[in-house]
Design a protein around this nucleic acid. Structure first.
Lengths: 161, 161
DNA sequence: TGATATATGTCATAGTATAACATATCAACC
DNA sequence: GGTTGATATGTTATACTATGACATATATCA
């Protein structure tokens, strides 16, 4: 439930661990974690921020892994479809999942100043909103929860409680 | 707290009432509810569904109210900025607010089959997520909450509880 | 090894949104 | 009533985001 992303962490190992766990998940499900897909995932992990598809594509292009938009979009589609990457609708951008092993409804805290993004694992939208939906007869399949504001690093210190 | 949008209602009066209340709100705040802005608001009300900016623009164009994208985007920006219209990020589309008089965090139920959209008034994102944010020192300013699934009209009837 | 599904390369185009600048209108005050 | 500053509109051009379509290649498995 605790968000990460505004604090420093062991970045070197986090990339390796994440790649490894996705590798295992793909093997277990018969999915192909191909070179382009793996590289896109790594690129997103390296930044720990939301990258646009064309930013990812630029990186791929400079590495000779593909130069046309569909290359990036296909890899991103694959990764988001299987929950390894999330799309931030507000930013039209993608970010590596911070909790790749568990099934969850991601929630995001997006700093409007520095664009840092923290992912909080939550089932909030399956919580209170679920009651409203049930009353109406609406069947929720997935939910998007994105909060915008100022991250701890961008808040004027006298505003911090 | 009850969503509307999947049930029929008195459509004729709802448009007139909404326009009137926005008119009053603008007058009270010294905002200019100009012809283009009013017409865009009416167009969204007439449909009670999410319209893309270019769909709105097409309507404006056919009525001689402007033919270039900025005309539509400016009106939509104005209306969303002041809470009379909401943007559905998931659909890159805009919908007239169902609760124009009150300050609120809108939540949406979006049907993936028929694209109907219901707005539920809620402060859900200021609720549970607020706790997580506070722990991190993140200051939430606004939130986006959009749930996707099947509306009552599109659900196979044997699935309905 | 052949059949089927899945993934990639590539070109073309569709859809969404904004920058920039000139002109016009509004609101308020002298 | 005219001046001033803020706000709104008209218009051109362009940037950014995303997908359709089709040919080729690779993987999977009977």
């Amino acid at each position: 439930m605790a968000p990460i992303g505004f604090a420093s962490h062991d970045h070197n190992s986090c990339i390796a661990d994440a790649v490894k766990s996705v590798d295992a998940a793909c093997a277990a499900s018969g999915l192909q974690f191909t070179p382009v897909r793996k590289r896109v995932f790594e690129i997103l992990l390296e930044e720990h921020r939301a990258l646009g598809a064309y930013e990812v594509l630029d990186r791929l292009r400079s590495e000779g892994l593909g130069s046309q938009p569909p290359v990036a979009y296909r890899a991103l589609d694959f990764l988001t479809k299987h929950g390894f990457v999330h799309k931030i609708e507000r930013l039209n951008a993608f970010i590596a999942c911070a909790h790749p092993t568990e099934k969850h409804t991601p929630a995001f805290l997006i700093c409007r100043k520095c664009s840092a993004v923290a992912e909080a694992e939550t089932d909030i939208a399956q919580g209170r909103l679920a009651g409203i939906a049930a009353d109406t007869g609406f069947a929720i399949e997935r939910a998007i929860l994105e909060a915008e504001g100022l991250c701890p690093n961008c808040r004027p210190s006298d505003e911090k409680a």
